[in-house]
Design a protein around this nucleic acid. Structure first.
Length: 420
RNA sequence: GGAAAAGUGGCCGAGUCGGCUGAAGGCGGCACCCUGCUAAGGUGUUAUGUGGAGUAAUCUGCAUCAUGGGUUCGAAUCCCAUCUUUUCCGCCA
């Protein structure tokens, strides 16, 4: 959430930045409520102060054996007034908080301005789109033929868009997870985390999934728990409500988790194969940093994600998301897109975002700097990588004329073979 | 799932017939002082949020003793609910 003080002091600037995302956005309503809120608080504070003093006086008088009936009645009336004001104050506090929770982060100055995803500039490309001298197959056909994924029975077990990996397919999925985790922990310096796959409402609010994106998540019926849509949620919130020391920063954490998404509103999109399903595996990287180092750490994290693709030998490009396309909580974001022959196009496989202090303010993650002052950390995260989409990209890009699929060298030690 | 006990500041730990306690004391941290014998001693300082005044240093109101309600002129202190922790019992991979 945005800092109310920042909003108060730079309303034009904040509005201008928000309108880069969407011309409809504005903080004017927040400012209105804020003014009322402060006025009420001042009044209530004054009455509370008065009550405190009077009550102490009553204590003294009682000790001296004086009659306090009159003054007690007076203070009781004061109490009623305070109560009325407090109710008003709570109402305004909640209204303001609710508004703030629904306002997205302001884009970074370096985030390209645009009106839709068509305005996302490509920053760089690596490798060339794969060429075949035979008729290649999309991964959904290959997976079925080779019995790597049993799409039909997956649906039978749960619902459409749920997948059942089996045999070499299940093993390849596991190998990819292992490779990513080993790479990030051994070469990139991340701590491996295995978090709960369900999180409560407070945790979901910390990273920005709630309250605005409730319908995107699966919720438990009898508990205040949601299935996580990404490891970002539990991992970023590990230090929620805590105060870190500057020496603790930056924190590098990586986690494999399944991710659960209802994909409400994407009916008809990517209906075949592994690209868009309700439960998929992902290895996520999360960083907590100081404000000074976050731009650099964001670049480094993006490179860590790119390293996964390079080592697998998958062609990809990096695009910078424009102001209309970056996520709700992010101020800057790069997407990595892998070449997918069946789409004859690049497809998102990682999203690396810098959130500034937006999530930290929601989750209340602070650190004490060298001068002893408390500050919010900056949070950064990115996929390293989406495992199901990596699986699909490997199957499609490395398929051979004889129907086999070459296993990238870095995965061979996990697979125990160089082709399947 | 049942029973019992407990939840105070960075940490430990006082605070039970409600009143000057935002909270004793200790540890740790920070600053200064003293001192030459491998470290100790002395003094001071050391929570967060939110509002007001001031260019600022800073000053100041209010709130906060797990969370949310309630009782009361007044609550860390009493009552209720929730959450968490510990122990015992039951169940279980």
């Amino acid at each position: 959430m945005l800092d109310i003080k920042l909003i108060r002091e730079n309303p034009e600037k904040i509005n201008e930045l928000l309108k880069r995302r969407n011309p409809e956005l504005s903080i004017d309503k927040v400012l209105e409520i804020d003014a009322d809120r402060r006025k009420i608080q001042a009044e209530a504070d004054e009455l509370r102060s008065k009550r405190k003093n009077e009550s102490q006086k009553i204590g003294m008088m009682k000790k001296n054996g004086e009659n306090t009936d009159a003054i007690q009645e007076e203070v009781r009336a004061l109490g009623d007034e305070i109560k009325a004001l407090e109710e008003k104050q709570v109402e305004l506090d909640n209204a303001q908080k609710d508004l703030l929770l629904h306002i997205p982060n302001i884009p970074d100055e370096t985030t390209p301005i645009g009106k839709s995803e068509d305005d996302n500039p490509t920053v760089s490309t690596w490798g060339e789109p794969t060429k075949f001298d035979f008729e290649f197959k999309p991964h959904w056909d290959l997976c079925e033929e080779k019995n790597l994924v049993d799409f039909e029975r997956g649906v039978k077990l749960s619902q459409s868009r749920f997948t059942l990996y089996r045999g070499k397919g299940a093993k390849l999925e596991r190998a990819i997870i292992q490779f990513f985790l080993d790479l990030h922990t051994e070469k990139h310096g991340y701590e491996e985390i295995l978090p709960p796959f369900m999180a409560n409402a407070a945790t979901m609010t910390g990273t920005g999934q709630l309250p605005k994106f409730k319908e995107d998540m699966y919720k438990c019926v009898d508990e205040d728990l949601y299935l996580i849509p990404t490891a970002e949620v539990p991992v970023t919130n590990i230090y929620a409500g805590e105060i870190l020391s500057e020496d603790d920063l930056p924190k590098y954490m990586t986690a494999y988790t399944p991710c659960f998404r209802r994909e409400a509103g994407s009916a008809g999109k990517d209906t075949r194969g592994l690209i868009r399903v309700h439960q998929f595996n992902k290895v996520e990287m999360v960083k907590l940093t100081t404000p000074e180092s976050s731009p650099e750490e964001h670049e480094k994290l993006t490179q860590d994600a790119e390293q996964c693709l390079k080592m697998l030998g998958l062609p990809f490009r990096r695009v910078a998301l424009c102001t209309a396309d970056i996520g709700f909580s992010a101020n800057k974001c790069y997407d990595l897109e892998v070449w997918l022959p069946s789409y004859n196009n690049y497809k998102e496989i990682s999203s690396c975002s810098n959130y500034g202090d937006y999530q930290a303010r929601r989750a209340n993650i602070r650190y004490r700097n060298k001068e002893g002052k408390l500050q919010f950390v900056h949070t950064i995260n990115g996929s390293g990588l989406a495992v199901g989409r990596t699986f699909a990209a490997i199957v499609e890009n490395f398929q051979q004329a004889d129907g086999t699929i070459l296993i990238p060298e870095v995965l061979q030690k996990y697979m125990g073979t160089d082709r399947i």
